[in-house]
Design a protein around this nucleic acid. Structure first.
Length: 563
DNA sequence: TGGGCTTGCGCC
DNA sequence: AAAGGGCGCAAGCCCA
């Protein structure tokens, strides 16, 4: 059963049951308690909540102790549908969808407040921040009626989309459930030990500077650099100053990027590299970062499912998806608990193997290390793992078209490489591409044939843009399909952890990696749940291609102990 | 002073 | 010939 739900007015909910086509089966009702709470385990008739915006509505449910089992997020579904229908960029709120249905003016989507900026409400906890604003409906129009109508329309459009992309219904369900997971992840937070973090910082940087300024280790390196480059008072954080000093000192560089500096010989390069490394730790994940983002022993970023066009998540606040290895030691399970950490190794090439049906590459996925297998089979040298890896990654990222290993991979795995080249050609010609479940790439900036046609006055610049878009679509097919797999994994794992009771919960998710915090006695069951969820994701998303996606889960005390 | 831009780099 | 996909974030720079 589906239950269309809107909040308010006041601390009340309005709801109306509908069937799978979206047709109402009873009259609307108003209740004080949330009407879509998950039924007790074993009860018949699981409810799918249909609502406008999980990110806006679900935190209040959680605060009231309510868990939603399944949902249909009308805003996220609208975004997926618009993309699939080639109508990228239109506003995706229920109000906008309703305007398209009725011929009204589409309101623009509201912009979410960024935590920690002046637009934020300034409350201490991200989780307590008020819900984001909804796009306005015309006066006199009933929000529940709108939601019922838009949902019914979406169900019909999803049926149409499935004729092209059979997995599209799964994609909408997984995207909606991902939004539930995102709210629950923020609520749970990642355990963060301030004392361990302090010890790491002290060891690397020296004591915290009392009155601003650089930590001792960085200051010493800055002074050493000033001497080595004969540039008194040099600020290594100033790129123009640094570049001038390097060039004056006879270092022939045109930028100060690490990669370029690594190619030249100079006594200043090593201390500069060390200064940068420490500076990164200090500014991105130092004491100030912890004071801003860690509360009560937990790091609670805000997650944005589908925040990346490829369907990957993005995050707001504290760089949650870029926690460097150097500080992962501070992520420690509380007493009596463990962290079960799992990531899908080499997910993107495995997804590529399945999508292309390349028999050779599928067979290679059944060996433990895919890149080593590719090296043995395509290059004839099992020890050339690094070369095979770079070759395949550049095939998926659009780089280094001329490399010898790429040519060898193309000969040995023609279907897999052909899929990437087809995707790149589609992009260069201004066409969209789709993930395995049907997420669709945004249109080329120039559309088919570029802004002026193939021979227009800006043909050179348009050609460059078209090649760039080709690299994007080349990557999109694998990145977005890997995100499809990961979303289905996450949703299946959420359900399995719920079945284990209150002792285990997801606390982190990053592209192809999950962290579950669990009471120690449940750890073995969590490991099994992850393996089950991975196998299910592979079956549902990649079908019975025979592709193997390893998802090794390990129980550890600290995130840094992950093998 | 504030905002937008560039540079550099962490994660996948 | 151009030359590596997707992000978020901090600091410096530059100009209004």
């Amino acid at each position: 059963m589906r239950l269309v739900v809107t909040a308010g007015p006041g601390p009340r909910w309005r709801s109306r049951p509908v069937d799978d086509a979206g047709t109402p089966t009873a009259a609307p009702v108003t209740t004080g308690a949330f009407p879509g709470a998950e039924a007790p385990a074993g009860a018949a008739g699981a409810v799918r909540v249909v609502w406008a915006d999980t990110a806006a509505a679900y935190p209040a449910c959680r605060a009231a102790g309510v868990r939603v089992g399944r949902c249909h997020d009308v805003t996220l579904a609208e975004g997926l549908l618009l993309g699939h229908e080639g109508r990228w960029g239109r506003p995706r709120s229920p109000a906008a969808a309703w305007a398209r249905l009725t011929g009204g003016a589409e309101p623009a989507d509201p912009v979410a407040a960024v935590p920690g900026t002046p637009a934020d409400d300034g409350q201490d906890s991200l989780f307590d921040a008020g819900p984001r604003a909804a796009a306005p409906l015309p006066p006199g129009v009933d929000a529940l009626d709108v939601l019922v109508a838009v949902h019914a329309d979406q169900q019909a459009r999803i049926a149409d989309a499935r004729a092209v992309s059979p997995g599209f219904g799964l994609l909408v369900a997984a995207e909606s459930a991902s939004a539930l997971v995102a709210v629950e992840l923020t609520e749970a937070g990642l355990p963060w030990r301030a004392d361990v973090h302090d010890a790491l910082l002290l060891d690397a940087l020296g004591p915290r500077p009392r009155h601003g300024g650089r930590p001792a280790r960085m200051q010493a390196l800055a002074e050493e650099l000033a001497v080595l480059l004969d540039a008194p008072g040099l600020n290594p954080d100033s790129q123009p100053d640094l570049l001038r000093a390097l060039r004056r000192g006879g270092v022939p560089v045109t930028s100060t990027r690490r990669g370029e500096l690594a190619r030249v010989e100079h006594p200043a390069i090593e201390p500069l590299s060390r200064y940068r490394e420490l500076g990164r730790l200090f500014t991105a994940n130092g004491w100030a970062w912890r004071e801003q983002w860690v509360r009560g022993g937990r790091f609670r970023p805000e997650y944005v499912p589908g925040g990346v066009v490829s369907g990957r998540w993005s995050s707001r606040g504290g760089g949650a998806l870029q926690i460097p290895r150097a500080v992962r030691g501070a992520v420690v399970a509380p007493p009596g608990h463990l962290l079960v950490v799992a990531d899908a190794g080499q997910l993107e090439p495995r997804v590529l193997a399945a999508m292309s049906g390349d028999a050779g590459m599928i067979a290679a996925t059944r060996q433990g290390d895919l890149y080593a297998a590719l090296a043995a089979e395509a290059l004839g040298r099992p020890d050339a793992r690094a070369e095979a890896k770079v070759g395949l990654l550049s095939a998926m990222y659009g780089g280094g078209a001329g490399s010898a290993s790429l040519a060898a991979l193309r000969r040995r795995f023609p279907a897999a490489l052909g899929l990437l080249e087809d995707a790149a050609r589609a992009g260069e010609e201004g066409r969209s591409v789709r993930s395995v479940l049907g997420r669709t790439s945004p249109p080329s900036p120039d559309g088919p044939d570029g802004p002026d046609g193939p021979d227009g006055p800006d043909a050179e610049a348009a050609g460059s843009r078209s090649r760039a878009y080709g690299r994007f679509t080349r990557n999109f097919v694998v990145q977005a399909s890997a995100a499809d797999w990961a979303a289905v994994l996450l949703v299946g794992l959420r359900a399995r952890l719920h079945d284990l009771g209150d002792g285990a919960r997801l606390v982190f998710f990053q592209h192809d990696e999950v962290v579950v915090e669990t009471a120690e006695p449940l750890a073995a069951q969590v490991v099994a749940a992850i393996a089950d969820a991975g196998a299910e994701a592979t079956r549902l998303v990649l079908g019975d291609t025979g592709v193997h996606v390893p998802l090794a889960a390990t129980a550890v005390r600290s995130y840094a102990d992950k093998p």
